[in-house]
């Protein structure tokens, strides 16, 4: 039964669809006249997909609502500002990415050790507080200590930025996939269902929560580094923007978190809507529309877009099976 055709087909599907998507992504920059706009748009997709996937990795299964995304993303910005300034990079870009990820990991580990005892809304408030705290501390350090407002980061070409993002996305998906499929993924879900019971069943709940929180933070930090080389001017407002804590979370909820594709689909759709609205006359209505769609999702699609697709698919399959058995 283990090696039946079905499981091989599943495996092929599991690896096949992502591979096709990956190859398509690799060729985006080569699509003729559309390429310049396309590469910018797709970079934006990738940024939000990575943030949504990283966020869902921790919150999707444990149910701990983290609003700290902007804090870790901002750390990436400042890793770039300090190690990759316009007047001369101190280390190669991939080292900056690793540093941004490592610093975010360590900060998340410490913050996690302190706050993951907090439950529900208290954890959410603390993580949002962390973003505001980082903002204040960095602002103070820049203005009062260094006497500057922002730092200019070396500009990277659109292609370099794009391929770095593809690389970080691949790492994010692989990490999310392996956590989900491993016994740690099962442990995370047990924590989400009943943390106390999980602890009494031998799960080291504190350790697992902190580790996965830190891993997801590392991915957010890595993205921050790359976005900074595109934005080039880094100050506390761009680095620690609370919207970065909210948007990916809302995108992941919209897409559905029961499945790895959910956050990615949610992020793609919302980034696109955002792009259209922000360049048109509806600029000011983006947040309103975003909010309305989200409320509708929570009310009518508790498992998000992916849940809806899965339901429809099951129904089609069910109907086909019924037709086959009857006919």
């Amino acid at each position: 039964m283990n090696l039946s055709n079905i499981s091989w087909r599943k495996l092929g599907l599991n690896a096949g669809v992502p591979l096709v998507i990956l190859i398509a992504l690799i060729f985006v920059p080569f699509y003729g006249s559309w390429a310049d706009y396309g590469i910018t748009l797709f970079s934006l997709f990738l940024v939000y997909i990575i943030l949504a996937v990283a966020w869902a990795m921790f919150t999707g299964s444990t149910g701990y609502l983290s609003l700290a995304t902007a804090a870790f993303y901002g750390i990436g910005f400042y890793a770039a500002a300090l190690l990759y300034p316009a007047e001369g990079a101190l280390v190669p870009l991939f080292v900056v990415v690793l540093v941004g990820a490592a610093v975010s990991f360590v900060l998340a580990f410490i913050v996690g050790a302190i706050t993951l005892r907090l439950k529900g809304i208290y954890f959410a408030m603390f993580t949002l507080g962390l973003v505001l705290l980082m903002y204040q501390v960095v602002n103070y350090w820049l203005i009062s200590v260094l006497g500057i407002r922002g730092i200019v980061v070396a500009l990277e070409s659109n292609e370099v930025i794009y391929y770095y993002l593809v690389g970080i996305l691949v790492v994010s998906i692989l990490v999310a996939y392996f956590i989900k499929r491993s016994k740690w993924g099962l442990a995370l879900r047990s924590i989400g269902d009943n943390e106390e019971a999980a602890a009494h069943t031998g799960v080291n709940v504190t350790m697992i929560k902190i580790l996965v929180f830190a891993i997801s933070a590392a991915l957010m930090g890595a993205v921050g580094v790359i976005v900074a080389t595109k934005t080039t001017y880094v100050d506390a407002n761009t680095a620690f923007n609370p919207m970065i804590s909210f948007s990916p979370a809302l995108m992941a909820i919209f897409g559905g978190m029961g499945n790895l594709y959910g956050p990615a689909i949610g992020a793609t759709i919302f980034t696109y809507i955002q792009e259209i609205l922000q360049t048109g006359s509806l600029k000011n209505y983006y947040m309103l529309i975003f909010g309305l769609i989200l409320i509708a999702t929570i009310l009518y699609l508790p498992s998000g877009m992916m849940g809806l697709i899965q339901n429809l698919w099951n129904r089609i399959k069910g109907a086909r099976r019924r037709a086959l058995t009857r006919g």
Binding site: K183, L186, A187, S190, A198, T201, G202, V203, N204
Partner: peptide, 9 residues
Amino acid sequence: RIGALFGAQ
């Protein structure tokens, strides 16, 4: 399964 995976090691 969680009991089996995380219990006495």
